[in-house]
């Protein structure tokens, strides 16, 4: 769900082009833009409170008996539908979908690597700002 929208849509389109899938697919909940209330637990009293709302797009599909559900950040109905398709396909075992499952698995790996690489890049900027102030003697 954290893949870039472009890549999600690309893999989603690949899924939708599968002839077996198009016959087996039904949309349970069409892509809907809505809000998630973000809940946090603070460290002083270990209490929960609501920080604010986040705009997301949610979608749910069914491929034969396999439910696929997804929620992506922001307003992006195409990406939410694509992510729900990927989620449903990743739960299938049929050989007709094996190529798609491989594509989805690659997308997951690629997303993990993108996030890790971005963290590393950011850290290389941050590390020189480590500070150790000294006290006046």
């Amino acid at each position: 769900m954290q893949a870039t929208p472009d890549r999600l849509i690309e893999v989603g389109e690949l899924c939708a082009a599968n002839p077996k899938l198009s016959a087996a697919l039904s949309i349970v909940h069409p892509p809907t833009v809505g809000l998630v209330m973000m809940q946090v637990r603070e460290p002083v009293c270990r209490e929960r409170f609501y920080l604010g709302e986040v705009v997301v797009t949610r979608c749910e599909v069914l491929i034969d008996t396999h439910r696929g559900w997804a929620m992506v950040s922001g307003e992006n109905k195409e990406a939410a539908l694509a992510a729900a398709l990927c989620d449903a396909i990743s739960r299938t075992h049929e050989p007709e979908y094996s190529l798609l499952r491989e594509n989805i698995s690659r997308l997951c790996d690629e997303t993990t690597e993108r996030i890790d690489s971005s963290t590393r890049r950011e850290w290389s900027d941050l590390a020189p700002t480590r500070v150790n102030f000294e006290e006046f003697e």
Partner: peptide, 14 residues
């Protein structure tokens, strides 16, 4: 104008 879809899981600020 938007529906509330859900509440998130409580994220521990740690």
């Amino acid at each position: 104008t938007l529906p509330r879809l859900t509440y998130s899981e409580a994220t521990d600020v740690d």
